[in-house]
Amino acid sequence: MYKLNNLTNFTSLLKTKWDEIHNETDIFRYKIDGVEERIVDGKYFLQLNPDRRSKRRTPEEMTSISQPFDEKKFHFNKVSTKEILFSLEGRDGDIHTVLVNVSPISRYHSLLCPSVSRCLPQVVTPDSLNIVVQVMFQVEDRDVRIGFNSICGFASVNHLHYHIFVEEKTLHIETVKWQHFKWEMYLLDDELSVPAFCFKIKQDSSGQTLQQAWKVLKYFLEKSIAHNILFTKRGLGDDELYLIVWPRRNTCGAKQLSAFNVAMLELSGWFPIYDEEDFKNVQAKDLEAELVKWKRDDFKSICENIKCIL
């Protein structure tokens, strides 16, 4: 057990524990070794991972962005203790668990499950945002990203969790120029196939900016707008990070393991690919055509509404 506010070796601890489980146990549904990679058009990062389609757990069927937690379905309190990398204790004594993702997209792909024993649904909360920010300000390098997929935004388990990734390559979303929108909030609506909002969070004023971000996310929840979130420090100082949010078209039903499931990673410019022919032949126009399918027609009106609530 580690204290959330006093964890100085998060990345090295995660890597060490993850490697031990990956190399010495049969917990993973498949191994992540020698994954083929490809860069398309200088900005889209592709990884070939056919095992994820054929060997991962069947995603849960979900129809409402605020669908209640269901004890009868799969959740993270049902996993083997062998899947636990480590646990973090918050100031209130709440336990936040870091698990391996047994069907990983890439090496070190893990899950952060805030307040795991409370059995919260996959709905973003102010407390969980704060937990992620605390973790991000304690990671030792900028290769760590943490992301969230809402229900109807290609989440596959209805139990509150965030994805942890460690990747040395810079993602396309981390290279774009943001336009100031309001307060510490920025906007990108011209360059991306799916426009996004961005909050620049400074360590000494994170609470205030997180309150602004929560107002936006609460609006999405109230309006049943699916969304994906990325936390990244890439390109910033040690005491700053970006919280990027994409409002997007809603999905319905179970997540299909098709050629492209556009969630947080894909919106960032990172595409896990399941088919070798797709991996070899897909072009930027194909990826962008898939991305733009999830762009909301009402993004401009969403911007106007958000200006009024901030």
Results as ranks from 00 to 15, higher is better:
9 N>T: 13
169 K>P: 04
247 P>E: 10
182 K>F: 10
213 A>I: 03
13 L>N: 08
111 L>H: 10
202 K>G: 11
154 F>A: 10
79 V>G: 10
287 L>V: 00
253 G>W: 04
287 L>G: 06
44 Y>H: 03
51 D>P: 15
180 H>D: 08
275 D>F: 02
290 E>K: 11
150 S>F: 12
21 I>R: 01
77 N>C: 11
61 E>T: 15
200 K>H: 13
68 P>W: 03
256 Q>E: 06
179 Q>S: 12
205 S>H: 15
178 W>R: 05
56 R>T: 08
235 G>E: 06
196 A>P: 08
222 E>H: 14
21 I>Q: 05
44 Y>E: 01
258 S>R: 13
304 E>K: 12
155 A>G: 11
162 Y>V: 00
200 K>Q: 10
154 F>E: 04
170 T>R: 12
139 V>N: 00
165 F>R: 00
111 L>S: 06
190 D>L: 14
14 L>Y: 06
243 L>E: 07
293 K>G: 10
259 A>Q: 01
306 I>T: 09
27 I>C: 14
153 G>N: 01
228 N>V: 01
174 E>L: 03
86 F>V: 13
213 A>W: 00
185 M>P: 09
66 S>C: 15
197 F>G: 01
306 I>Y: 05
206 S>Y: 11
184 E>A: 11
287 L>R: 00
106 S>A: 15
